[in-house]
Design a protein around this nucleic acid. Structure first.
Lengths: 193, 193, 193, 193
DNA sequence: GATGAATGAGACTTCATTCAT
DNA sequence: TATGAATGAAGTCTCATTCAT
């Protein structure tokens, strides 16, 4: 049908479903978003969605698999490095960057924890923060040091979502946030050197 | 029914509904928790719940009104104090204490942001953190200082939920967390003295 | 509501659902009968059905439990009797009577075997005929004798459903059928005496 | 694609569809068997099935036309014979043989009566048994004689499906079954000679 | 000879809510 | 103070079928 410029090419509809779904999931929550709604936005019928995904949950899963990459990579990198201060600095840098690139996914995750708890894919992702926390602190360090590292991570992580509330260029704000987190880790790391 | 020692006194059932509801809302999310479920746990029928509350949302509302007090009080206190470093220290202390007493409610809020966004009562509460953030930092301070204060708050706030993952007595952990947050605020406050 | 003569009394709707469901299941098959249809006939809404039964399958189950009794009783009786010719005669008599009283259920079963195979309750019932077959023949008897007994049972069982095609009073026809079956069993039993 | 030894020849796929469809229809019932399932087993797509058949029902129809032949032939033969005892004996023999060759189809028919009732092709087939019943008994005979003939037919027909439960060679069992049915017809026929 | 993509209809089921008692 | 019975709306999902390629 050459006359139809909107002719769907292979894989295009699938991608559009993921896109719209993430938007709606993030905006209204996973439970409150119905497939009817997604279909309406896309101007297709519900079964069209089922042609591309086996279930509502599978849509979510595919989104995680697509967007969750950067963070997973940062963690994978961290896990094979020596646990030096420099590694920690670099890990924060990488995690922060990954976070920036995946803000919508993480915002969705934050806001739908209760739902994700029942979905496995959510549970896997939740653990990542624990893993990073572990990479930042040192096994035998004091409670204060451990909490300080966790605080650094929390600041970087949740702070990312608060950035729009502050003035300044994105670049500027991200660097400021990263340097606060880095400083906290350095202070926690220092005494052990 | 004088013979029944378990006779429900006025208001008791109401309180039990709130209790069970918060538990279930926090565990499974607000949307996924049905009134049928709440009724089942309480061993009453659904209409019995409607005798005590006008709607599902009203249950949530009443929970916020009951449990949200301590935090609101801490904020109200902060708003009428002079903005000295000592005030900030005390504010963190009070906020931390209020948080401890209200962990289930806050856990629920964190995990159901998307849902709460549509419920007004949720929106009001969300703003509180912004207000406290404002009380901790100083209007004209640098971006770094502002972010540092926000980091302190984030650390205290979200750290509270992470405490169970660490070893040590509750008392000990809470103090360590508070002192990290305090230190951050002090550093942000310092240069301006 | 005294003015409403059709006011539903406890359990009445439940019974009506079973009644209508069996009718429709028998007429169109279990799969092809939708809850919407049942609800329409009853002039209630679908959720009203769900108030009385947990699922479509549970409706079927309850029908079996209600109507399956007579046959189950006949079998239970047969299982504790000495295996004499007289017992066999009486067993056919009882089975035939139970069958008469439960024609709609059995018609449904015959006509929905494939569906019932997936439903457990169906499987249990299916086995009953095997059990009766066993009670009619003798363990060590010849193949011919065993098949003859099975033929008697088949004649009695399926013949019951064919009776309306013949002329004569119900009483008359049932007795004729029973005597044919009895004669077959007697011939199979005879040689061993 | 000359290189592909498994190249589908004209009509081969069609036959495979019928084969798989009958298997699944017999196993799960017509309604519960979806075209998706058939397509999956065959490793083709749904539209491929529509290339060979116009509808789901047409698949069923074609199966009946292919496999129903032997029985229809037996009946056709019977209808033009003089109604002697020998004809009846031969008719049972032919019907039994036709049945053996078509067990899967008849099993499906037995187990999906309710569904077939709505499908016309099913209704036609159902009548055959009535026709044979008519050929076996004599118009003016007694009720007992008529029922006895019907019993013979039922025994032969349904007994065929029960044969696997008994021990012995297939040949042996079939002959035993046939002789039981024949004997019944003879007894019913006898008095009139 | 077959496929990718999509559709309209309808299935079972659950929910928050109501009303008479 | 609570219950039995019922409802309207909506949910996820599957089905038979079609059509352009």
């Amino acid at each position: 049908m050459a006359e139809n410029g909107a002719r769907k090419s292979r894989g295009e509809t699938r991608r559009r479903i993921q896109e719209v779904a993430l938007d709606l999931f993030a905006e209204q929550g996973y439970e409150k978003t119905s497939l009817r709604e997604i279909a309406e936005v896309l101007q297709v019928t519900k079964p069209a969605i089922y042609y591309h995904f086996q279930s509502k949950e599978e849509i979510l899963l595919s989104i995680f698999q697509n967007l969750g990459r950067p963070v997973a990579d940062a963690i994978a990198w961290g896990e094979v490095q020596p646990r030096t201060l420099e590694t920690k600095r670099e890990l924060l840098r990488r995690y922060g960057a990954a976070l920036d690139a995946t803000v919508p996914l993480f915002r969705f995750m934050q806001e739908n924890e209760a739902t994700l708890r029942g979905l496995e894919v959510g549970r896997e992702f939740k653990d990542q923060m624990t893993v990073i926390g572990g990479l930042l602190s040192d096994p035998g360090s004091s409670l204060a040091a451990q909490l300080q590292c966790m605080g650094a991570l929390l600041t970087l992580h949740f702070g990312t979502f608060a950035l729009p509330h502050f003035e300044g260029s994105d670049e500027e704000k991200r660097e400021a946030l990263l340097s606060i987190a880095t400083e906290m880790v350095e202070r926690a790391h220092g005494p052990q050197d």
